[in-house]
Structures are given as structure tokens and as C-alpha cells.
Write a protein that binds this DNA or RNA. Structure first.
Lengths: 348, 348
DNA sequence: ATGAAAGCGCTAACAT
DNA sequence: ATGTTAGCGCTTTCAT
């Protein structure tokens, strides 16, 4: 066994084991040359490069990230900050962002904020602390004024969610409106007349956009939405369940179809129906929005939110910004996709 | 408008706007004092502290992360590396880790590796590059030799998954065996005799542990598992579906109950049954493992994997290691929890 | 093509 | 309680 102590943390010489200086000594060259090799500079003879690489190999050298970042003034790291949201959502965005980031040798610093002040604080720290080269921000609850200010800092900012007027930031979002329109049109095309809509919480950007899409579709088909069938939900499964339960308990008859503006609420509806021995699409057709994993398992027709693409696209924007390749479009709107499953399939 | 260019990336003076030097000048003090304030040193007069804080405020100072990290030899950042796994899993672990990390002012650097070499490469970079103070690693497909070596580096390592013999690393994992035993016992207690088990892929640590739990339960109840009812699955929903479909297509009769060693396979079973107009628990009882979100929606009885706690616990271990509070237990095994839903509930 | 040396922004002895 | 100064490990002019 070695003579070092058992406690992993007790490291008397806390200084990094192998440095450029060590490598340069070993190779009989200067630190500048070593650095050049590290950075793939073309100004090193092949022979010299070999010597350096060999020395690195032998000493087990790995460059110190902080030192490089300090000297180069870049971290090769992207910040990604999420509000405290559904795992199902952020994880997909993260996967997407990471795909592209990895291809460009960028690392991801991820943070979740649980409340607004904490979120604002994190954003500031990331933007001004030189911790990251750019920040991808999902800013559900940060106000526009703050965002505008943040966007004026030294660090490029990419927003995922809603656009902020006059902010020097790129926005990546999805077309909620056309997505809802797709779903609604799908129902109308199938010949459903009495269609109920379970809205999202009032004042939420996505919810409002989706609701607009519903009205657009209705207008396009020249139908009138029954105000009694416009229900206010919360985006949680409970609300879908409770709305339908209450409706049925009141002895009212089911509509032909229900469009819940997100999947959890649609699943809530499904549960309420199941409890009463009712089924989909026999007793009522059902569409959700987002295409969360469970939607597939449950055969729920829905509109796929391009979450992974949102992450990719945000990362793509960052890369372009950092590359400084001239103008970067300041808004990218990704399309949704209608996914038809059993819950709206005409019966045989 | 300002006179600066529109391109966010063109910043001629790329050097950080406000530094400790600026603050110290503004406050009429030395950089050392400013640094002390930054680090909450008790050796500053309140009055002085005020002055420094005021100067920082006025100048809009934010400490540079890389510079601090370089000087202090710590990053206040934890690395978390996942193999390319299910979003449902890593997101929960991440949430758990983040909860604790945030409480201790630690940041998270997250990386996903898509193949083994990439993963090993990342691990090395994180461990030796001084990018993080400690690394939480889910090492599904890294071999033991590599892990042992990695654990001997300068950076504390916490493993999530399976233990590695003789590695100087803390392992956090869950009790797959007792979890499967719980599920199996539950079925046996309900009086089910012919019980089928859908195993996971051969040689996978979790799968093997869970299978052991099945046998333990059988032994405890003094029953013999029918070898014809031990099916080999892949941990994907398709395999559950196909196994049951094939079974039924072959004209064989359903067992009393089916225990799929993870939820996706159980859901696959559910789909195969639904397609044939069979239902749960009427025609067969069903239990899964993991308690993914869909399990709740589908009323699937299952064993809850403590994923979030896994993240928390790993982070807890890291914090203890970094704190250097003496011995840190080198293994933490978290308990699972049986969740009984409709799929095994006796019918009325 | 390679080397010497001056930083990058902050911290931590060591002085006072 | 505050200041001076020498690093932390790497990059980058500027020489040669």
C-alpha cells in the first residue's frame, strides 16, 4: 500500500500534480511551445510536437481548466439555467443542448432555480462571473426588464420560452399556436362538433398561444366554440381529472371530443373517464399537447413539442454567436408535429 | 442608441470589465481587503466592509470564477457524468443532486457520454483537469479497472450504480434485491401461484440483483419458480410486449401474475394485453420496477427506485468528502418502496 | 520554429 | 485590521 493517508481530502501539496512547466522541462522545451501544442498551433515542427506529446503522455498531463479559462478568457462552457420545472421537459432540452455542445467540445454547467430571486441571482453570477461563455436561459418567470438588462451584459444570452421585446438576445421557442391549430383541425376534420378545450393557467405564454391556435382553427373551419365547453385548467393532471369528474357528476353529457392543452391534463381526463367505465375514443375523443412519454404508452393523440430540438437549436444559436459569424437570427420558432394515436382514431 | 457594434461577439476589450483592483481603487483600499470581504473573512472592520461592498455595488462587480478557482484551487463545482441513459432516470438523479448542491453553494457541471471511450475521456478530463472539486459518476459501462484507477486521482469520486471492489470511491446505490423481493412477496401474499418473471438483460448488475430478489422471495415462501415462466427481456417496453404476444399467440395460458423487472417492460405487457382485449388485474396481475411517471398514470403496481435520493445521497457524500470530516462510509444502499396500485389489487 | 516574460483576476502568506 | 507581493497554471505578445 501507499504511504498516503486514507482520507481522500488530505492532500498536503494541493497544487496540481503536472503542469505545463513540468512537461516543458521533461521535453526540454519552453512552456510556450507546450502551450502551442496544447492549442494545436501550426507553428510547431512535427518532431517537436511529438516530443511534447510524449512528455505529456509520460507525465499524465491534463490541462488545468481554470488556468486556461483565465488566460484565454473563455471557458468552453455553456450555462443552462432552468426554473424549477418538470423533469420531463428540462431533461429533453438538456439532452438536445448537450448533443450539439459535445460536438463542439463545449461543456454544460446546469442550474435549477427554485424561486425567482434565486434565479435572477444565478443568471447574474453566470453572466458576469466569467463562468460560462454563453447562457441558455429558460426564463418562465423572470420579468422582461430583468432579461433586457441581462442581455446587455458581456455574455451572449439565448432564451428558451418566450421572446422579450428589445432584448439583445436570441430566442428559441416553439410554435404553440400552430400546434394547437393542428390538433384542433384534426378533431374538426374527424367530424367532431362539440369540442371541449381545457385551457392552461391564465396569463401563461404557452397557454395563451395554444388557446389562440384553438380559436384560429375554429375560425378556419367556420365553427363556433361553445363557451360552456371552455374549461380553465392548471396544466396539472389533477385539473383535467377534476374538471371531467365535476362535469359528469353534474349529470352533463360528454362532448364529442376534448382537447387538453397539455398531456398531463389529458391524462387526468383519461383517469376520470376510466373511473367511470368510460373509454376513449368510444365515449369521447381526446387530444393532449407535448407528447410526454406517457402519451405514447397510453395511446394518447397529441402534439409533439420539439423539446430536444429546442435544446439543440438554443445551443446552435450559442455556437453561432460565439463564432461571431455575423448576424444571428434573433428568433427561431420550431414546429410541432401532430401525433395521432388511438385516442382520436375513428372506431372500426 | 449606443455606439457599439450590433454583433454581440465583437468586444474589443475582452478583459473583464470590473476587477478587484478596480474595486480596491474605488474604495481606497488594497485588493487584499477586497478579497477578504469577498470571502467573508472576519478580519475586516464593519466600516471597511461597508466601503468595499458599496464600491462593488457601484461598479457592478462580480468575481471572476476562473481566477478564484485558480487561486483557491477549488471550483465550487461538482461534475456529474451520465452514460447515455433514459431521461426519466438521469433527470431525477440530477434534481436530487442539485437540491443539496444548491444548499451548499455548489454548482453542477453535467455531461452525458454516448459511448464508452467518450465517457472514459470525460471522466479523465474532469478528474485531472481541476474542472470540478469532485465527480459523481454513473458508471454503467465503465470497467472496474478504469474506475479503480480514476478513484486514485486527486479528485474525490462518488459512484452511482454498482460498487467497485477496492476502489477509493464512495458508492451510492439502491437495494435492487430487496426491492424485487418486496414485489415478489407482494404477489405471493396475494395468493398468486403461477408467477412469470421478465428478467432484464443478462449480466447487467441491476437485472441480476433483481432476479436474485425474486429467487429469495420464492425461497422464503417455499415455492418453486416455474422455469418456463422465466422470460428474458431487454428492459425496453418492446420486449415485454413481444414476450407476452408470443406467449399468447402460441396459445399458452396466462400465468396468475407477471413481474417485469422494470416498468417499461411491464407497460409493454400491458399493451400486449390491451391489444387482445385482456385486462389487468382481471386476467393477470402485473408488477413493474422503478416507478417511472407512466406507472402512476397507468395504475401499475411497482417498486419505487429512489432516484432523487440517489442524487441527493451522492451529493451528500461529496460534501462530506470535501469537508474532510473524517471517515465517509464507502457505500450507501438506499431502500426501494413497494407501490401498490390497481394492477395487483384484488378485484371486488 | 522556439523562447522569455508579462499578464489573466484572484488569494494567501507575510508584513506592519 | 490592512497592505504588499508572490504565486495559481496557462496563454500570448515580442524577440530571436
Amino acid at each position: 500500500m501507499s504511504t498516503t493517508t486514507d482520507n481522500l481530502t488530505l492532500n498536503p501539496t494541493k497544487t496540481q500534480s503536472v503542469t505545463v512547466a513540468d512537461v516543458s522541462k521533461r521535453a526540454g522545451l519552453s512552456t510556450a511551445t507546450v502551450s502551442r501544442v496544447l492549442n494545436n498551433s501550426p507553428l510547431v515542427r512535427d518532431k517537436t510536437r511529438e516530443r511534447v506529446l510524449k512528455a505529456m503522455q509520460e507525465l499524465g498531463y491534463t490541462a488545468n481548466h481554470s488556468a486556461r479559462a483565465l488566460a484565454r478568457r473563455r471557458t468552453d462552457t455553456l450555462g443552462v439555467i432552468f426554473p424549477g420545472i418538470d423533469a420531463g421537459f428540462f431533461s429533453e432540452v438538456l439532452i438536445g443542448a448537450n448533443q450539439l455542445a459535445a460536438e463542439h467540445d463545449l461543456h454544460l454547467a446546469v442550474a435549477f432555480a427554485r424561486n425567482r430571486p434565486e434565479e435572477a441571482q444565478m443568471v447574474s453570477e453566470y453572466l458576469y462571473g466569467g463562468r460560462v461563455d454563453a447562457l441558455i436561459l429558460m426564463h418562465l418567470r423572470l420579468d422582461d426588464r430583468f432579461i433586457r438588462e441581462a442581455a446587455n451584459g458581456p455574455t451572449p444570452l439565448v432564451l428558451i420560452d418566450r421572446p422579450v421585446e428589445d432584448a439583445r438576445a436570441v430566442t428559441v421557442r416553439m410554435n404553440n399556436t400552430s400546434g394547437a391549430e393542428q390538433a384542433m383541425s384534426h378533431l374538426l376534420e374527424q367530424g367532431f362538433k362539440r369540442i371541449a378545450v381545457i385551457q392552461g393557467p391564465e396569463g401563461t405564454f404557452d397557454a395563451e398561444e395554444r388557446w389562440l391556435g384553438c380559436r384560429n382553427a375554429a375560425a378556419k373551419f367556420g365553427v363556433e366554440l361553445d363557451p360552456g365547453l371552455i374549461w380553465r385548467g392548471t396544466f396539472h393532471d389533477r385539473s383535467g381529472r377534476e374538471l371531467v369528474s365535476a362535469w359528469l357528476d353534474a349529470g352533463k353529457s360528454l362532448p364529442d371530443a376534448i382537447f387538453a392543452l397539455n398531456d398531463p391534463m389529458a391524462i387526468g381526463v383519461l383517469q376520470a373517464l376510466n373511473e367511470r367505465g368510460l373509454s376513449v375514443p368510444k365515449d369521447v375523443a381526446l387530444v393532449g399537447f407535448d407528447d410526454i412519454e406517457s402519451a405514447r404508452y397510453l395511446g394518447l393523440s397529441t402534439v409533439r413539442s420539439p423539446m430536444r430540438e429546442l435544446g439543440r437549436s438554443a445551443c446552435q444559436a450559442v455556437i453561432e454567436l460565439l463564432g461571431g459569424k455575423g448576424k444571428v437570427p434573433d428568433e427561431r420558432i420550431l414546429d410541432t408535429e401532430l401525433v395521432v394515436r388511438q385516442s382520436t382514431r375513428a372506431l372500426v
